Amino acid sequence: MTHVLDRPAWNALASVHASLAEGSPLARRYPPSIVPFAAAADDTPESLEALASLASGPEVLALVEARPIIVPPELETVLEASLVQMIAKNPFERLDDARIELLGENDAEDMLALATLTKPGPFTLRAQQLGKFWGIRMHGRLVAMAGQRMRQPGFAELSGLCTHPDFQGQGLGKIMLRFVAGEISASGDTVYLHSYSSNVGAIALYRAIGFTVRSDMHFRLVRRAGQP
């Protein structure tokens, strides 16, 4: 039996994030201005053709699945990687830290700048449409942040975790991780996250604070074949 998190994008777009979904019952995607995640309903030729039709021009679709990903012939792979999906073993306690503030629309450009610098994963100016984000500012600069991305009934993905290189080594990433995990747990959802399998340091940190590997995951960035 498959788990709802085996197909996180499809199950988010078919439930909690259905209001954001573009596409049809055969394939869905988030608006590209928010995040590039997409998924076909299944591996039938009709669903794969519908998935391919969601990509236009040079834009990419991000696919993440527990099972091997079948790419329709109309699309080509730009990036392929192995991920691990980790889930909280127990609910996290809420963390009280006066430095942490809820981020809003006025912070969007600073958030994008920090994400562009540190590359925590796909991030856009409209990322806050997916869920709340929090951050730490020092001397007026946004130096650390984390928030929520895909959501399914009973689950919320912790994402966008990053720390400015000038402020790394001060434990800010761990603080943001624990804080956002606590906020998700307080809402009644179970926290999960994704990490590149090669990022052994991050995986060790996640294990140390209460996450366990739930599944290996496949990840691909794809686009229309023949794009420059």
Rank of each mutant, 00 (worst) to 15 (best):
E109Y: 11
A98C: 05
G104C: 12
L51D: 05
P73V: 01
A113Q: 03
N90G: 04
G57Y: 05
K119M: 11
F123H: 03
R67A: 14
E80K: 05
F133G: 06
A115G: 07
E93Y: 10
S56D: 15
T118Y: 04
K89R: 14
E76C: 01
E93L: 11
E80Y: 05
A115C: 13
L142F: 04
K132L: 14
A81S: 15
A146S: 10
R67W: 08
E59M: 14
I87G: 01
D96L: 10
E93H: 13
R99L: 00
V71E: 05
R137V: 04
S53H: 09
R137P: 02
A62Y: 06
P72F: 06
D110N: 10
Q85M: 08
E46G: 02
L51M: 04
I70S: 12
A52S: 15
L75Y: 01
E49N: 11
L130N: 01
F123W: 07
L103G: 05
K89C: 10
A146Q: 00
V78R: 00
A66F: 05
L54S: 07
V60E: 15
E105R: 10
A55C: 06
K119L: 10
L114I: 01
I70R: 12
I70E: 15
T124H: 02
P120V: 01
M86T: 06
A50C: 08
I87Q: 04
A127R: 11
P58K: 14
P72A: 04
A50P: 07
I70V: 15
L79D: 11
G147P: 04
L79N: 09
G140E: 10
N90V: 12
L51W: 06
V78E: 00
H139L: 12
V71P: 04
T116A: 08
L103Y: 06
V64H: 10
L63K: 03
N106P: 07
G131I: 07
I87C: 03
G57D: 09
P58N: 15
L83H: 14
L95G: 01
R94Y: 08
L95E: 07
Q148Y: 00
G131V: 05
E105F: 07
M86G: 04
